[in-house]
């Protein structure tokens, strides 16, 4: 992945979040406080503006800038969590230039660890982690299996990650929330899809769309 692909991914996330903002807010209204779509849209709109105004840097700079922008602009739990994930991803990548698929896998793993450390969530708590953790696992496996591909396995890994994130997102429906605002509802949180896991899927879906359409 090079810096222009990294930017294209984040712009695609911004487009996707903007299109799904109402849906995300509706999901949040059921078990939270009706602001997830609004907050994510505000954050990624700010990310887009920050990237527009920043020099064409390496992949590391692109992700750390995006992460810092989310931490500074979103608030709530989403800002620190998604922002820390992107910052950790950036910091795990080479200081200059591009990142190969193995480095990206390590960065995504570092992002997941940052989220778990900051939020204290584990798989099954009905959070971002329920989509993010299986996505990272799938990305790593596919990256290894497809390392001989022309693109170093990036497209295959991204597609596998998006599919796993989507499954993880759907699997949050029967869970009872144990973290975040939805946990206050106790058993009443069962039967609803987690908004944070949904945003996580949108992010991985945007990655898959970006790397498969730009570099066939």
């Amino acid at each position: 992945m090079d810096a222009s692909q990294a930017r294209a991914w984040l712009y695609a996330v911004a487009d996707s979040i903007a299109g799904q903002a109402d849906h995300l807010t509706q999901l949040d209204a059921a078990i939270g406080d009706s602001d997830h779509g609004v907050n994510m849209n505000r954050g990624f709109t700010a990310v887009r503006a920050a990237l527009d105004g920043a020099p064409a840097d390496g992949v590391r700079g692109v992700f750390t800038l995006a992460g810092s922008t989310l931490v500074s602009r979103v608030g709530g739990a989403s800002g620190p969590l998604f922002g820390s994930a992107l910052r950790a991803l950036g910091k795990a990548l080479p200081e200059q230039g591009d990142a190969d698929t193995a480095a990206l896998a390590a960065g995504l793993r570092a992002g997941l660890e940052a989220v778990c450390k900051l939020g204290g969530a584990v798989p099954g708590d009905k959070t971002i982690v329920d989509a993010y953790a299986p996505a990272v696992d799938a990305f790593e496996q596919a990256a290894r299996a497809h390392s001989g591909d022309r693109d170093g396995g990036l497209a295959a890994a991204a597609r596998a990650a998006a599919d796993a994130a989507q499954q993880g997102m759907r699997d949050t429906i029967p869970l009872q929330a144990r973290r975040g605002r939805a946990s206050y509802l106790g058993e009443r949180s069962v039967g609803h899809q987690d908004p944070g896991a949904t945003s996580t899927w949108l992010i991985f879906q945007a990655l898959a769309d970006t790397v498969t359409t730009r570099r066939p």
Partner: peptide, 11 residues
């Protein structure tokens, strides 16, 4: 003050 029902940001 943060946004409505959203905590303030660290900055």
């Amino acid at each position: 003050p943060g946004e409505v029902f959203t905590s303030p940001v660290p900055d």
